[in-house]
């Protein structure tokens, strides 16, 4: 899923400054699962913003609404009835796709992103998320013992580990596992080292962002 985290409150306050009536739009997708932008987090943020406004003695009405997803127009348009409220700002709590879709659907509204969209990953434990994919558009993890060197090696090496791998950790930080240590251990224990060594991979980055913004259109699904 997409892992995101809330922006610092001071930055969010700059979005709200001078506004009297705002709408917080939460999302029931990835950002609910990673506890960043679901109904609950919207409730917390709404409360904090109201407390801040009360402290400053300025009027602020914060409404909250949760959409099923914000990456599908059919859900975005569920906002239409609320648009009659004439909000001074709409704060989306989805990944950055949400505020973009809202802004595009309602071009007259001022739309702000509440979250920083961080990476594609999963939960290692409750409250801990880690990156596992870089959306390079051409998955090769099966060649690396099921591990992704593109997203998990700090240098995206296809022939690692570099000389900075020490004690199973990356030279960048002791917080980062050296994925190449893990790959080597895996192919060693699998007994697939020979096959592994015969690989000569050069990444074709065209399928990644480097090929320009990507789009998938499937004829059989189009109306």
């Amino acid at each position: 899923m997409i892992i995101a985290e809330r922006k610092p409150i001071d930055e969010i306050k700059t979005f709200v400054k001078g506004k009297e009536k705002i709408l917080l739009v939460a999302c029931r997708g990835c950002v609910t699962v990673c506890n960043a932008g679901g109904t609950k987090e919207a409730g917390i943020l709404a409360s904090l913003l109201r407390l801040d406004a009360a402290k400053e003695g300025v009027p602020l009405k914060v409404d909250e609404l949760t959409l099923e997803r914000q990456c599908d127009p059919e859900y975005i348009f569920e906002l239409s009835p609320s648009m009659g409220e004439k909000y001074d700002a709409i704060l989306s709590m989805a990944c950055s796709i949400g505020p973009q879709f809202i802004a595009s659907a309602y071009p007259n509204e001022k739309v702000y992103p509440v979250l920083n969209t961080c990476f594609l990953g999963g939960a290692l434990a409750h409250g801990v998320w880690a990156e596992r994919c870089q959306a390079c558009g051409n998955c090769i993890i099966h060649k690396f013992g099921g591990l992704c060197p593109i997203s998990r090696c700090s240098k995206s090496l296809l022939n690692g580990p570099c000389g900075g791998s020490a004690g199973g950790k990356c030279e960048v930080s002791k917080e980062i596992d050296c994925v190449w240590q893990l790959i080597v251990e895996k192919v060693t224990s699998d007994g697939t080292m020979d096959e592994f060594l015969s690989l000569e991979l050069v990444k074709d980055w065209r399928t990644s962002r480097d090929g320009g913004p990507r789009k998938i259109a499937r004829e059989e699904l189009l109306k």
């Binding site: 610092p8 409150i9 001071d10 917390i44 904090l48 913003l49 407390l51 801040d52 402290k55």
Partner: peptide
């Protein structure tokens, strides 16, 4: 921490 961030 949250309260502190809004000046409480």
């Amino acid at each position: 921490a949250e309260l502190k961030s809004v000046g409480y």
